[in-house]
Amino acid sequence: MTTTEGPTPTAAAVDPGPLIKLTIADCAAKVLHSAVALGVFGALADGPRDGAEVARTTGVHDRLAADFLDALAGLGLLERSGGRYRNSALAQTYLVPDAPAYLGGFIELTNETLYGTWGRLTEALRTGEPQHLDPDKGGFVGDRHRDPAKMKRFLAGLDAYSDRMGEELAARVDWSRYTSFTDLGGARGNLAAVLVRSHPHLRATCFDLERTRPLFTEHVSGLGLTDRIDFAGGDFFTDPVPPSDAVVLGHILHGFDADRCRTLLRRVHDAVRPGGTVLVYDRMIDDDRSDPERLLSSLHMRLVSQDGSEYRVADCGDWLREAGFTDVTAEPMLGTHTLVTAHKEAAA
């Protein structure tokens, strides 16, 4: 016999609106992705334009143009007045190509990599297996594209995000205490470039897989920073981590299980010079596991990798202390991430 603690709510008493909104949440994201792909925000970069003119410029068909542009306005990405449209402050700041804070590359990247994989979530939930889609058909392969041009595009998409991370780290950390840092998984060197430009006394090393070297060399040379940022090719778990005053691990630990995280942080502790620091940032799960965005990010890592997942802030602190670090602190970062900082004791 089934019992309840109170009367069962009737359909009339419970608004299904939140459920419907959740059911079609991907529609809003696809509107954004299409607007970036079609160049809507670039077309409006210089000011308001008539809707028909925007449609002609971007190639949007007349039959869909009004609903499409008005949907963008409803989502807060455009502003509409008298049949004319302009970018909202949000879009003008982050979605106009060539703008300093442009995030379009990251948006294109998520459109390319997320939908095919998440379309197989039910299969993954039933089997427990990661969904490795065929890279030759555009499937998610992270930075492991067989085609160097696709790998370059993937890493360039991440640059937009690493710009913001670099600016945050440049402002939050007292870099006057250090002269060098190593960026684990530094890819093309973009985050390192932001830091050394903000703090000219710093010298950086990007430690990443050897196949990344040509892309790093091209990008850092283009930035004119070859005398400030070095590249070290190798594997985190088999090759020595380059010694430095600070080590940055951004979006690294979420790719491994807890044991591998402990192993890597012990290796990082060996590489940090006495009195130095380690900086870890990820979409860490809040300790009571209640933030849905963090949990969705963790689910994504489990979906696309055999061992990866996000981890609790408390777990990160425990691993760092086990590795020998002290003075562990955690703080929110960019509204979506957590930055955990810990220190290595100075030499006696």
Rank of each mutant, 00 (worst) to 15 (best):
A52H: 11
H300N: 14
R86I: 04
V36G: 04
E79H: 09
R84E: 15
G59M: 05
I20D: 03
P97F: 03
R302M: 13
R63S: 13
S309D: 15
V220I: 15
D159H: 11
D315K: 01
V280F: 12
G275T: 08
A71K: 07
D46K: 11
A124H: 15
F325V: 03
E108N: 04
D291W: 12
H33S: 05
P214V: 07
R321V: 12
R49D: 11
K30N: 07
H132R: 13
M165N: 07
E129I: 00
R86E: 14
L295C: 07
F237E: 08
V248Q: 06
V220L: 11
T338I: 10
R120C: 05
A55H: 06
D235E: 08
L265G: 06
E310V: 02
R228K: 14
F140S: 00
D50W: 05
L264I: 12
D134F: 08
R84I: 08
D98Y: 01
R126I: 00
A323V: 04
A71C: 12
V141C: 15
A193E: 12
R273I: 09
R203H: 15
A348D: 07
F256C: 04
P135Q: 05
L223Y: 09
D286V: 02
V194L: 06
I285M: 11
Y281E: 12
K344E: 02
D291P: 07
D245L: 05
D286C: 05
I285K: 03
P7W: 05
L109M: 08
A29V: 07
L202R: 13
G6R: 13
H132Q: 02
K137Q: 11
V247H: 04
P7C: 06
V328I: 03
D235W: 10
T277C: 05
D259G: 07
G142K: 03
Y85M: 09
G234I: 07
D227S: 12
A323R: 01
P16N: 05
M165C: 15
L184V: 14
V141A: 12
C27Q: 02
D67R: 14
L253W: 09
A232G: 04
L72W: 10
T8N: 01
T326C: 00
V278M: 02
Y85D: 12
D318R: 11
G224P: 03
L184I: 15
D230L: 04
W118Q: 00
F41H: 14
Y115R: 02
V304S: 02
R146Y: 07
S305P: 00
Y311Q: 14
L78Y: 09
Y115S: 00
A156T: 15
V54H: 10
A187L: 14
